[in-house]
Each structure stands twice: as C-alpha cells, then as structure tokens.
Amino acid sequence: MDFTSLPDFLARDRAALARGPVAVILIEDRAEVASTLDHHVRAGFREVLALTPADIDLPEDLRTRVKLIGFDTLADGALMRALNPLIEAAPPTTWFYWGYNAEYLFHPFCETRNVRELIAFHIEERRDAMLATVVDLYAPDLLRHPDAVNREEAMLDAKGYYAAARSDGAGGVRERQLDLFGGLRRRFEELVPKTRRRIDRISLFRAQKGLTLRSDNTFSIEEVNTYSCPWHHNLTAAVASFRTAKALKRNPSTSAAIPSFAWTNSVQFDWSSQQLMDLGLMEPGQWF
C-alpha cells in the first residue's frame, strides 16, 4: 500500500492533485481490478488513485503507474467520504473522474483522442463537468460466470433507455438536467431500490470552491449537474460497468430471481466508442 489512508495521502502527496486529470477508482472487490486501472492509465489520466480496503495484487508495471490508498470502500457514504476531501484539497484547475473497479470510461473517439484532449475541448466550450451514461455490462452465461463478469463476452442492452426531466422538488424542473434510466436497473427495477435506479452520472468534473458530492450522486453546484450549455449540445461520455450485474448476483435475495441477464435486445459489446455513439448512449456534440 502506497498510503495507509486518504489523510495520509493528502498529508504526503497532495501535490499529485495538481497533476490532473485525476482518476479516482474505488475498489470494492477483486473483479477486474488490474484491467480497470490499466484502462484509465491508458486513457490519459496523469494520476490514477486506487482507493482500496486491502492491498491488491497488480502487475509490477501497473503498480508504478497508480497510487494505492487504504480506504473502506464498502462503508456507508464511501464515495462522498472519498471524493469530497479530494475536491477540497485540489486546485480549481484539476479535473476528476470517479468510478469503481470493473467500470470503464469511454468518450467519443477515445481510440484516437485521450482524456486530456477531451477535457481541453470541453473547457473551450466553457464547461466544468461532463454527463456520462452508466451502461450495464453483463456476462451472457451466468453458469460459467456466476459473478456476471466476463470482458471477452460482455453484453449490453441495445434498447430500453429513456430520460426524464429532473424535478426541482417544488413542482418545476431543473434546467438542462435529466434523470436517465435503462439497462439492468430498469429491467429488474423491482429488485433495485428506487433511489438507485438512475444511470446518469457526472463522471468528469472540475474541482471548484464549495463543490461537494451529495448522497444522490449529484453535486452541490447545480450547473455542474447539467448535460449541456444553454446554446448547443455538448460532449457526453459513457461508463461501461459490470457493477450492477455484480451486485444483483452477489445478493442472495436477488440472485435466485435472475437465471440470466440476456434478453432479446442484448448485443455483444465491442469495446468501441462508435458502438456507444451508434446506440445513442453518448454523443460527440460539436467535437468532430
């Protein structure tokens, strides 16, 4: 372990937060830890912070490219307790990504343009955050892969997604904010708590004074939660994620009700940004 705790990291290596963009990965179990960290290193993040409850085995070349930080990622409110101190400690020029192991950030044309180029363009459009759709991945055969994780044969839903205007709690709607639904959380919604059914996530954002993540995974500054600026559509991203499938199969009360995740509208994921754009799960905006 490089750092025993998050306070230890902030005391000894806070300067790393100025070398953004920074990817913050919460390790909840041992599923695809190495592939997740490697994906985000290759995506172009200058710092990759792996918050993990125990030391993890990584290839030696990967160990030199990420920082392992001791953290109880399974505790209540773990994401807020991890992200908010990092936001507070970072300079306002730092961009963050956050996600979990077995989740992979994709953005338009990511095969040829890295995340630093993505952010540079987004800044030119006067944007401080980017909306992402969390796209559920799952193994097609749960007998061979009972944890629902299989990168080589990963499937996703090609249909069944929708957006609803986000309520402001006072009878109106929040400007340029959407609640997104679809994937496994929609198909198996009776097994998913209502507060966890959304698949929208502000996965990329710039640190700024007073910004905090709230318990519903939205931010305290409302403009950060918007999907575009007022004058035209902006870039959006996608997070390809096995996390929901893992959770549904790990929990005995839900696992027995799901013999398979595959259905008529399942398609194999080809791990390309073009497929995600073709399915309407992210868009390039003006970034041609």
Score class of each variant (00 low, 15 high):
residue 6 L to M: 14
residue 8 D to M: 09
residue 12 R to Q: 14
residue 12 R to M: 08
residue 13 D to A: 15
residue 14 R to Y: 09
residue 22 V to Y: 05
residue 22 V to P: 04
residue 23 A to G: 11
residue 25 I to A: 06
residue 25 I to E: 01
residue 25 I to L: 10
residue 27 I to V: 13
residue 29 D to L: 09
residue 34 A to N: 03
residue 34 A to T: 09
residue 35 S to A: 15
residue 35 S to R: 14
residue 37 L to K: 03
residue 39 H to C: 13
residue 40 H to A: 10
residue 41 V to D: 06
residue 44 G to I: 06
residue 44 G to K: 06
residue 50 A to H: 08
residue 50 A to K: 10
residue 50 A to Y: 07
residue 54 A to Q: 14
residue 56 I to A: 13
residue 59 P to E: 07
residue 67 K to D: 01
residue 69 I to S: 12
residue 75 A to C: 03
residue 77 G to Q: 05
residue 80 M to I: 11
residue 82 A to W: 02
residue 84 N to M: 11
residue 85 P to N: 11
residue 87 I to N: 13
residue 91 P to E: 04
residue 93 T to V: 04
residue 96 F to W: 03
residue 98 W to I: 12
residue 105 L to S: 08
residue 105 L to R: 06
residue 106 F to I: 03
residue 107 H to I: 05
residue 108 P to I: 08
residue 110 C to Q: 07
residue 111 E to L: 03
residue 112 T to C: 12
residue 114 N to C: 00
residue 121 F to D: 14
residue 123 I to T: 11
residue 123 I to S: 10
residue 127 R to P: 03
residue 132 A to E: 02
residue 134 V to E: 11
residue 140 P to F: 01
residue 141 D to S: 10
residue 142 L to T: 09
residue 144 R to H: 12
residue 144 R to K: 13
residue 147 D to V: 07
residue 149 V to T: 10
residue 149 V to C: 09
residue 159 K to A: 15
residue 160 G to P: 07
residue 161 Y to V: 07
residue 165 A to G: 05
residue 175 E to K: 14
residue 178 L to N: 04
residue 180 L to Y: 09
residue 182 G to F: 09
residue 183 G to V: 01
residue 184 L to C: 07
residue 185 R to V: 07
residue 192 V to R: 07
residue 193 P to Q: 05
residue 193 P to R: 13
residue 197 R to C: 11
residue 198 R to F: 13
residue 201 R to Q: 12
residue 201 R to M: 06
residue 201 R to F: 07
residue 203 S to F: 06
residue 205 F to P: 01
residue 207 A to N: 10
residue 209 K to R: 14
residue 209 K to N: 12
residue 214 R to K: 15
residue 214 R to H: 04
residue 218 T to D: 01
residue 219 F to D: 00
residue 220 S to Q: 04
residue 224 V to G: 00
residue 228 S to Y: 00
residue 229 C to T: 10
residue 230 P to S: 01
residue 232 H to M: 11
residue 235 L to F: 14
residue 236 T to A: 10
residue 237 A to M: 09
residue 237 A to T: 14
residue 240 A to N: 02
residue 242 F to H: 02
residue 245 A to W: 00
residue 248 L to F: 02
residue 249 K to W: 00
residue 250 R to K: 15
residue 252 P to C: 13
residue 252 P to Y: 06
residue 253 S to F: 12
residue 259 P to D: 09
residue 259 P to C: 14
residue 259 P to L: 08
residue 260 S to K: 15
residue 265 N to S: 12
residue 266 S to D: 03
residue 266 S to G: 06
residue 271 W to Y: 12
residue 276 L to E: 02
residue 276 L to S: 02
residue 282 M to C: 10
residue 283 E to S: 12
residue 283 E to N: 13
residue 284 P to S: 13
residue 287 W to H: 14
residue 288 F to P: 12
